[in-house]
C-alpha cells in the first residue's frame, strides 16, 4: 500500500534524510518539511536526485521554503498547509521521519 513519507531533517544533518530516500517504494510520496526543504532547493545537489526519483512524487512545504529564502528545484511540487492535509488523506499509510 502506498505511503506518504514526511521528513523534516536537513540532508546535512545525520543519516535520516538518506535513509528515508532508501526506503521509498514505487507509488509512495515524499513530503519535505522544516529543514528537509533544504534538499529540495533549486541548485542544491540533492534536488536533482529527488526530481528524478521514478515512481515517487516529491513535495516540499512552501512555508518552509519561503522562510529560508529558497525555491523548489525542478520536478518538485510545493504544497501549502491545505495541500499537506490533503496528502495525508490521499495516502493510506503515513511514515514520519525526524
Amino acid at each position: 500500500m502506498p505511503a506518504l513519507h514526511i521528513l523534516n531533517r536537513s540532508p546535512h544533518e545525520g543519516g535520516t534524510f538518506a535513509r528515508t530516500l532508501s526506503l521509498l517504494q514505487t507509488g509512495d510520496a515524499l513530503l519535505l518539511t522544516g529543514d528537509a526543504v533544504i534538499g529540495a532547493a533549486e541548485g542544491h545537489p540533492q534536488a536533482q536526485e529527488l526530481g528524478s526519483l521514478s515512481g515517487v512524487k516529491v513535495y516540499a512545504l512552501e512555508a518552509d521554503l519561503l522562510a529560508r529564502g529558497l525555491q523548489a528545484g525542478e520536478a518538485i511540487d510545493t504544497v501549502d498547509y491545505s495541500g499537506f492535509v490533503r496528502l495525508t488523506e490521499d495516502y493510506a499509510r503515513l511514515r514520519h521521519w525526524h
Binding site: H12, E13, I38, E62, A63, L66, A67, R68, G69, D80
Partner: peptide, 16 residues
C-alpha cells in the same frame, strides 16, 4: 554547515 542558510536573501517566515 547549515548555518549558512541564516543569510540567504528573500526570507519570509510569515507563513510559518
Amino acid at each position: 554547515d547549515d548555518g549558512v542558510y541564516h543569510l540567504t536573501r528573500g526570507q519570509d517566515s510569515s507563513a510559518l
